[in-house]
Amino acid sequence: MFLKRLLGFKSDNFFFTYFEEDQVPSYYIVPDKAEDSGQIVYKDFHSVKPWGTGLIFCIPPYLDFGQLLLREGYSAITLCYRSGYLLDFAGFESPDQYLKKQLGSRALKKINRDFRRLDEKHVVTFEAFFGEIEKKSYQRLMDAFQEMIRDRFAENADEHTALQRWDFYRDSVFDLILIKKASLFVMYGNGVPISLALNYHKGTVLDSAVTTFKNDMASYGLGKLMLVKKIQWCFEHGYDKMDLRWGDFEHKKKLANRVYTFKNQIIYRKGNIIARMRAQVLAFLLKIKQQRQ
């Protein structure tokens, strides 16, 4: 907070703004010639003071509209950021072919065994809410979702990013499901939710936002099984990419066939010396912070 006040900047997570809020920060403009861009909604950031700076972080290197351009009057310092994990299905004919390539035949056989073992004891069914869902069902599933996350991360639940943003998710996801910009995937055991996943949809990219499962059933590898269900769904519905976001977890490293680098952009008013100096100081401090991590 002190650094924000000192340097006078506004910050925003581009990935959240783009996938979860369906907007693009107004520092940018999407080229008119971009294909399949649809109606672009801009999130207002023009209130930044002329001498101030803006920090936009977590910009992925791929976008369904191709590229971003800075609006006239702005300059930016661009920094490399954390790694992102992407499943690119181009060239693969089936989910099994993709999984075998990434995990190997032995691991794929184990996953299938886990599915059978789970189904033998719990009668497993799967449902994807995408385009329609009843309000009562939505509320019930979101309550179960929140409770599962709390149970899994009981010792540090307050630090879990999804729980910090839960009010936003609860208030916004229902409408996004109806217009097919978000989905809820549910795995049931004997009719009771045992794993849930929240996803966002942009073009032919599925953003795997939050996945959780019943803590007392962790031995079945439910998190991995839900990811497999997502991959299968992507192939069935013509999605060519699935993004696992950031976080250096082993399952992401194994499943992703593309590791990309997010960008940070420190944006300032062109021609404003004070703003440029503030941007340079912020860039220096961010580089030091990254080196220490």
Rank of each mutant, 00 (worst) to 15 (best):
H237A: 13
D216E: 08
Y188Q: 10
Y138M: 05
G131C: 10
S172G: 01
M187G: 09
E159T: 02
S137R: 08
Q232L: 06
Y188N: 14
R152N: 11
A128F: 11
L163F: 01
V228H: 12
D151W: 01
G189V: 10
G223A: 11
L163E: 02
T161D: 15
V124T: 14
F153L: 12
E236D: 15
Q164R: 08
A157T: 01
N190T: 07
D216M: 00
I177T: 04
P193E: 05
A182V: 00
I133L: 10
G131Q: 12
I194M: 11
E155K: 15
D171F: 00
M217N: 01
I177E: 07
L198E: 09
L163D: 02
L225Y: 07
L184Q: 04
F145T: 03
H201D: 02
A154D: 15
Y169K: 03
A197G: 07
M187P: 09
E134Q: 12
P193Q: 01
W233H: 07
H160N: 15
F129V: 03
F185V: 08
M187T: 15
D175H: 12
G221T: 04
H160M: 14
Q146R: 09
R152H: 07
Y138W: 03
M187D: 13
A209C: 11
S183G: 14
S172C: 05
Q139N: 05
K229D: 14
K214C: 13
T161L: 10
G189A: 15
G189C: 12
V205N: 08
L196V: 10
L198N: 05
N190H: 08
N190Y: 05
L196C: 08
F153E: 11
D175M: 08
L196H: 06
V192P: 02
Y138S: 01
F130H: 15
Y200L: 05
Q146K: 09
R165E: 12
Y220N: 05
E127V: 11
F185S: 00
V186W: 09
F185R: 01
D171W: 00
A182G: 01
L178K: 15
R150S: 01
T212V: 07
I133T: 06
A197W: 06
C234R: 11
I179T: 11
K181N: 10
H237M: 15
Y138P: 01
V205H: 04
D216P: 00
V228Y: 13
C234N: 08
A182D: 00
L196Q: 09
F145L: 02
L178D: 10
V173S: 02
K180T: 08
F145W: 03
Y169Q: 13
V192N: 06
A182H: 02
F153K: 14
R165C: 04
F185Q: 03
Q164P: 00
K230D: 10
L141Y: 07
D207K: 13
L141Q: 04
V124L: 11
F168A: 09
K224T: 15
L141P: 03
Y188V: 15
E127Y: 08
R165V: 02
A154H: 14
R150V: 00
A182K: 00
